[in-house]
Nucleic acid binder design. Sequence first.
DNA 1: CTGTTAGCGCATTCAG
DNA 2: CTGAATGCGCTAACAG
Lengths: 339, 339
Amino acid sequence: MSANKAGRKASMGDVAAAAGVSKTTISRYLHGEFGYMSEQTKAKIEGVIKELGYRPNKMAQSLKATVSHMVGVSIADMGNPFSSLLIKGIQEECRARDVQLLVSDSNNQPTLERANIESLLDAQVDGLIVNTVGNNDDWLVRFHDRANRKPVVMLDRIVLPLIYDSVTNNNDAAVREMLEYLKGQGFAYVVFVMRPGEGISTRTARRQAVERYCDDLGLGGEVLVYDDGIDGLRSRIANLLELCGNRKTCLFANNDESMRDILEATSAGLRRHVGVCSFADEHWAKYSGPGITCLDQEPMLMGRRAAQKLFARIYDGSEEPCSLDEVPARLCIFASTEI
Amino acid sequence: MSANKAGRKASMGDVAAAAGVSKTTISRYLHGEFGYMSEQTKAKIEGVIKELGYRPNKMAQSLKATVSHMVGVSIADMGNPFSSLLIKGIQEECRARDVQLLVSDSNNQPTLERANIESLLDAQVDGLIVNTVGNNDDWLVRFHDRANRKPVVMLDRIVLPLIYDSVTNNNDAAVREMLEYLKGQGFAYVVFVMRPGEGISTRTARRQAVERYCDDLGLGGEVLVYDDGIDGLRSRIANLLELCGNRKTCLFANNDESMRDILEATSAGLRRHVGVCSFADEHWAKYSGPGITCLDQEPMLMGRRAAQKLFARIYDGSEEPCSLDEVPARLCIFASTEI
DNA sequence: CTGTTAGCGCATTCAG
DNA sequence: CTGAATGCGCTAACAG
């Protein structure tokens, strides 16, 4: 079992030659068109294929066809459990459709994101799922107008107005649910803690929701944006809690990362009437510190939804206008807010 | 800017026609062979390419060439922060070499792993990085003997004897380091806690190391294999600690997953003379429960090493005999063992 | 300085 | 029931 020419793998031509038939016949065999094929040649071909360990070359198939059965995903930051779950979800759908997944990490840099998308297209993917790093909307909007553009689905972070199919959390409603729960727990003041998030849709959405619903619910609230490391955060939090006096206050982290930063910044242990909650993965939040009440975003489900939307357009010929799917976040209650 | 035939993207032929030259000239232009090219046609081509938004089709290039500039990675379980960091590391090297990365998740099933590897090969990847699910060694060994086999690097989990290039942790030495540290802390008994791990190289390596070095160091020790959920684990641990009496005992988890299971199983809070440590990511261990002392495996570094080894073989023509790179795990000390 | 030709591995008419 | 011929987009001799 092997190849003949220059150490290459056996090709259809090799099989044809070995079986003493034409390439056409092999092709027909592979596509199950036995209708008018003699049992003899069929058996012969089967034998030769096994003998040579022949497998059709998908690249060559794609070159002729209009589809490659490959899709690309550009991920903002792969080193993030959230991202890996998005990809796991996407991957599940890919497996179901026998599609290959090309993954690129943008490392939070818009420049890389653009380069990655171009590279994926050069590799002839049939479509793209983009978890944008943010601050790349202008380019993404221009990209939308390109001729012969491949289908794109935005994942978790979106571009407005809605020019692409998108999947995200119900950020607004989730924030409201959390604030209502906190109010029920007797909290009087909420501090939303986040890294700078201009240009990242989820952050602004959540920030605005916090501001709005704190008002609606009669909660005191503010947004704390930090960009100066753990020590900076520590002193800001300390100041802030000072001002709060003995109002029951909750720190609400924008994501896992900020949640960990809060835990580190407050490790001296200034809890008393101070709660903590976060957008975060339930499995990790549950065992972080005392157990952190969280909004789990169900990233795997989000990934699957995004892939489904993409495949519908690519392979099922869907022509629907683009739409936004909101995956509801799950409120998971642990000890950090039961004070 | 657009295509002409059937909505396809502009091809080299289209560019050639529009520029009034032959495809060869375009090809030369693209490869920077301006040596004998008139400034005129050069300028003309440049204009047309921009006009048409032409980009060369990598698939077509690969069809002729002997390399595709794509590599595949088969990952045991994508839904695992460890895995995502492995991939992030691999991805970094891919970017540096302008290689596309195809990712497949085996969801811990050997059957899927085999199918994924075959699919990746069908897509014409130049090589593979395999983070095996375990219990697939027979197949992997047979695979090794295939004609025209593509280069393979095993990542984190290895196959013995060493027939593939491999990257793993220094499991044996790391376990020893941890046990020595525990002894220094006054622990007298160590329980290595793991899910069943027959057929997974890292688990057996660690398990054996624990058994050996406990003896060497004069520590009491045993291995606790659990497969019956949190409640099962809880009662096993309780029994076990009962037997230990008041010897200072440490639970040593095989990975993040078992670490979380231990935290859940002991959430009732039976710590006193009981410590906890684990193979785990520093960032997560630090904020888990009281802060869990851990061996951080540096998965990103592992991923990079694996990719480097693979690329050396594929693109630099390395012919070295296959070898094992051991990435040292870092001991990170937190509160859980400072008792 | 540029074009012609052939072929990578496969699918697809069309003609037996 | 089967095969020859053509072309997908690109590269690489080989001729001019």
